[in-house]
Design a protein around this nucleic acid. Structure first.
Length: 260
DNA sequence: CTCGACTCCTGTTAGC
DNA sequence: TGCTAACAGGAGTCGA
């Protein structure tokens, strides 16, 4: 599913949509409009305008217009971004390989004939005008030890739930978090404030390293743990049968032998 | 503060 | 063969 890494790809794709006059806004799926955003509002603010910047905070893609508006796009679990029919990502874990235009929940047409669309089979994504980004935590691509320290110190929740909380750290999803904790040899159920100094350092290293590595490899699903993330999977490090739990309401796989 | 339970959504799949 | 129920999880709400 799209996590911060996938949305970073989408951001790169969105660069193709900059500096092109918007001629058409198709927002017929009202369910896909979030917050106070209305279709008429999108029309009046976007038509005749153009995007001048594509930013990303966590899993949220932000397209700034010349006139000072910001279009926020969330992709939920199965959303893709297409510009001129091109998608940076063809394969999405837990989504489908089928690719139907009827799943376009939101689309923009440019004066030059091109398009930008959000194709989301399950409609868990959404579009919002001027979304709140201040409540999001530090982005995964730039997080440092001090910020991670604050995030961990402030909570007794399970470490995995804390890491996935977008208000604390923005961009980590279920797969990435399982992968990072597995690499860092930390049990996902550990309380956040129980980590020792060396464990925090290790965790930071693996957040940065995993994000960078999987960005280069092509996505959140490229982790070493991924192929074993199933009911009868074995730990790629030591061969132990992986355990499956619900942590923070999410399906979690971890190795009972080396994740402490 | 924390938690579980529930909601949204729909394509896929396990099981009968 | 065909149906159904469970599952996937990002994000939000609610009551305890």
């Amino acid at each position: 599913m799209p996590e911060g890494i996938e949305v970073e790809y989408y951001r790169t794709t969105a660069l193709r949509a900059l500096r092109r006059t918007i001629k058409l806004v198709t927002a017929n799926d009202r369910y896909f409009l979030k917050g106070e955003t209305e279709s008429e509002e999108l029309q009046s603010f976007l038509l005749q305008d153009e995007f001048v910047a594509a930013r990303r905070v966590g899993k949220l893609l932000l397209l700034d217009t010349k006139h000072g508006m910001t279009l926020g796009i969330r992709f939920g679990m199965t959303g893709r971004l297409l510009v001129d029919g091109y998608s940076a990502i063809d394969y999405l874990e837990y989504s489908t390989m089928r690719n139907e235009s009827s799943w376009d929940r939101f689309a923009i047409g440019f004066e030059d004939g091109g398009t930008l669309s959000v194709r989301d089979p399950r409609r868990l994504g959404g579009v919002e005008l001027n979304p709140d980004i201040d409540s999001l935590g530090s982005d995964i691509y730039g997080i440092n030890g001090k910020e991670l320290g604050v995030v961990l110190k402030g909570s007794s929740r399970p470490i995995k739930a804390r890491l996935m909380d977008q208000h604390q750290i923005a961009g980590l999803g279920n797969l990435l978090t399982d992968e990072i904790l597995w690499r860092a040899s930390i049990d996902p159920r550990r309380s956040s404030d129980s980590l020792a100094k060396d464990e925090k350092r290790r965790l930071l290293y693996h957040i940065k390293n995993t994000v960078q590595q999987l960005t280069e490899l092509g996505g959140s699903h490229m982790g070493e743990l991924q192929s074993s993330r199933n009911a009868s999977g074995f730990c790629p490090k030591d061969g132990t049968l992986l355990e499956r739990h619900k942590v923070g309401g999410r399906t979690t796989y971890s190795c009972p032998k080396h994740q402490k």
